[in-house]
Amino acid sequence: MKPNPVIFIHGLWIHSAAWQPWLDLFVDRGYDVSAPGWPGDGDTVAATRENADALNDVGIATIVEHYASVIGSAEGKHEAKPIVVGHSFGGLIAQELLATGLVAAAVAIDPAPIKGVKSLPLAQLRSAFPVLSNPANRHRTVSLNAKQFHYAFGNVLTEEESDELHDRWTIPGPGLPLFEDAAANFSKDSPAKVDTHLADRGPLLLTSGTEDHTVPLKVTKEVFGMYAKGRSDIEFHEFEGRGHSLTIDHGWRDVAEVALDWFSAKGF
């Protein structure tokens, strides 16, 4: 029997094409893989940059519905439910798909915080400042310049590597998900809400780079603590000395191998 297919979900500001090394590695290990972009993403980095307005007002619920549709359209083509790997906001989306039973298991890498998280480190605020500093950004896309990217993503990298990643992979990101996440604890029906006490879900691996500025370690540990109060299968892994760029920088394979080992241990 073939392994479960794997869907990779990117986060804000990074195009889905950046998953290509992961796709190649997972294919080598026998998995069927895909990395669909968000609704509004172009097929390439350049195409997305040229039509940034296509991502205006794309929020968390829209993104979840998009990936649910992708999974639904593939139903029947595989013997088993897909498993997902999500980074940043993709990690939040992965948790929502898992909670609704659409996927069999999920790895959430430095995931955007879910509703209920109270930690708000200064580094996280500074990383989100280019978007949240202007209320008008709620309805439009925002791009990070190289300096902003170096702080939010590449803070443990050389400036040269950070700038190369910025030039190669960054795309405009919709502001709406950040505004929705920032206001999650003040909204009864927040799209960032996940039932962490639900026992009837597949296994979840939460990971965090210890030096992440965009989603600091403290935040992901708090999310893990919320899940740990329930009875579902939840594990946590720290990547020492790694920042938010850990899925695309020179050390990406170390992160990918942890995901592969965990899926194997869980029988996927």
Rank of each mutant, 00 (worst) to 15 (best):
G101F: 12
K218G: 03
S16T: 13
A192K: 15
D43I: 03
H150N: 14
K77R: 15
L122K: 07
P111D: 13
A108P: 15
Q124G: 12
D110W: 05
A18W: 02
V223Y: 08
D43W: 02
A152S: 14
L165D: 04
H213M: 14
I171A: 14
F186E: 07
A106K: 00
A136C: 01
G241W: 14
G251N: 13
A106D: 10
V223E: 08
D53S: 03
A94E: 12
Y31N: 07
T207K: 05
S69W: 08
I171C: 13
V255D: 15
I71N: 11
W252H: 07
T214P: 00
G91V: 05
D212C: 07
A256F: 12
A106N: 00
G116E: 10
L260G: 01
P177I: 10
E211A: 15
A183K: 13
H78Y: 14
D200W: 04
N137K: 04
D212A: 13
L125H: 01
W38I: 12
V27M: 07
A152T: 08
E180C: 10
F26K: 05
D189L: 13
P5W: 10
P191T: 03
D32K: 06
F129I: 03
K118I: 04
H78L: 07
G76I: 01
I9R: 02
K221Y: 09
K118W: 05
I171G: 12
L205E: 08
Q124L: 14
P203C: 10
S119R: 11
V85C: 05
L125T: 09
G101K: 13
A17Q: 03
P174A: 01
S34V: 09
I9L: 13
S264P: 00
W169F: 12
G251Q: 14
G230K: 02
A74Y: 08
G72V: 10
V64F: 09
W262S: 11
S133M: 00
F268D: 06
P82D: 05
L144E: 01
E79N: 11
G86Y: 01
P3F: 03
I83H: 10
V223K: 11
S208D: 11
H66D: 07
D195L: 15
L217H: 11
V85H: 00
R253Q: 15
P172L: 12
G42T: 03
L260W: 08
P5I: 10
L246R: 06
D28N: 12
V103R: 06
F26W: 11
W13E: 03
F263T: 07
W38C: 00
D24L: 07
D189M: 11
L12K: 01
K81P: 06
M226T: 08
I171V: 15
D167H: 08
L55I: 07
W38L: 15
D28H: 14
P82C: 09
F186Q: 11
T44R: 11
R29Q: 13
A104R: 03
E240Y: 01
T141H: 10
V219F: 06
R201S: 12
A74E: 06
G76L: 05
G90I: 06
N137C: 02
L98Q: 09
W262P: 06
